[in-house]
């Protein structure tokens, strides 16, 4: 059953703009120019209960804007959305009690106090019964391994420790829907893996519905069976990772280990040479030609080992967004929304 339903959702920001320089600055005092930027443009999707969906796109694609509309922070300029049966931007208390949005770059903790004090306040704000609060807190503290840092001032915590405390605060009221916007941003690889593992565990234990945006593909590949790709505010793809690979990257990678060094073989005639390192060669060939290319290689060369693989998802995503320059205007959409 769909817990999140999005229909023709759109958000257009009015962004002030002017030329560089002092004269333009003075001019803007008297006559201000605005430009409409479509951050989200007519997107549709549904998310079922318990699903984890990865939301992918380059900077300024409209990911965060979409999450903000779904969490009730922004009013859309077009379309409809229902989350848990509520219209998010009506901001009903019953709705806000059942969701959580974690923004990697925004803190909900009291900076000058130990995290445990923020958790206490969170328990009161969400009106969590004391017994439930203690039980959930104990569980989260154990799963996130934050026991030793609970009594340290938040501003003295490392980024990874703070992120784990932010996650703990976000989950204390056991939200049914969780919007995670860059939950692993800035933390080291080991901490990223721990946070990923925790998110997966929370999803399995509580059946929470999760939409995740991340610049780290490892987050997405580890957690999301389904991904939604968005760019320039428009939905480009909605499906499984494998299907994305099929659709967006119709090629295979052939990896060959050779018995002998073979510098003069015309690999480029078979496919695009990704790397050629002594006796190891990697070729990119169109899917339709993969079988024929493999047969030719096995016939012509003395091959020790040969594998045919789908391209890494990072490369697929790079290919999808490759060639596009990051658009400052769309970036501005997500970083400077208020048209003052």
């Amino acid at each position: 059953m769909a817990q999140i339903e999005v229909e023709h959702l759109g958000k257009t920001f009015k962004v002030p703009e002017r030329e560089a320089g002092l004269v333009a600055s003075i001019g803007s005092l008297f006559r201000r120019r605005y430009r409409d930027v479509r951050a989200v443009d007519d997107i549709n999707f549904t998310v079922d209960a318990g699903e984890i969906v990865g939301f992918l796109g380059p900077n300024g694609a409209g990911k965060t804007t979409t999450l903000k509309m779904l969490s009730g922070l922004l009013h859309p300029t077009a379309g409809e959305a229902r989350v848990l049966g509520h219209t998010p931007w009506k901001r009903e208390a019953d709705y806000l009690r059942r969701i959580s949005m974690l923004m990697g770059q925004r803190s909900q903790l009291q900076w000058d106090l130990p995290a445990i004090d923020s958790f206490y306040m969170h328990g009161a704000v969400y009106d969590i019964p004391k017994a439930d609060y203690q039980q959930t807190l104990d569980e989260l503290v154990e799963l996130l391994a934050i026991g030793p840092v609970l009594k340290k001032q938040v501003r003295t915590l490392s980024l990874g420790e703070r992120m784990k405390c932010e996650i703990c605060a976000s989950l204390l009221h056991r939200p049914a829907v969780l919007f995670l916007d860059e939950p692993t941003i800035g933390v080291d690889v080991e901490m990223q893996a721990r946070i990923r593992s925790f998110i997966g565990q929370y999803n399995r234990n509580h059946g929470a519905t999760i939409i995740l945006t991340s610049h780290y593909m490892a987050d997405v590949t580890a957690l999301c069976k389904r991904i939604i790709v968005i760019d320039q505010g428009q939905l480009l793809f909605d499906g499984s990772l494998a299907a994305l690979s099929q659709k967006m990257a119709p090629f295979k990678v052939i990896k060959i280990d050779l018995d002998l060094k073979c510098d003069d073989y015309p690999f480029a005639e078979i496919g695009e040479v990704i790397s050629c390192d002594d006796r190891k060669v990697e070729l990119k060939v169109p899917k339709a030609e993969a079988a024929a290319a493999t047969a030719k290689l096995l016939t012509d060369l003395s091959v020790l080992d040969l594998t045919i693989e789908d391209p890494p998802i990072e490369d697929v995503i790079k290919q999808v967004f490759g060639g596009r320059t990051q658009r400052d205007d769309a970036e501005a959409t997500e970083t400077a929304g208020a048209s003052a």
């Binding site: 922070l73 208390a93 019953d94 969701i99 923004m103 925004r106 909900q108 704000v125």
Partner: peptide, 15 residues
């Protein structure tokens, strides 16, 4: 709070 986006976490609370 508005300029720094720090109102967002406060607006997400049911209070």
């Amino acid at each position: 709070l508005v300029r720094k986006g720090q109102l967002s976490p406060l607006l997400l609370r049911p209070i």
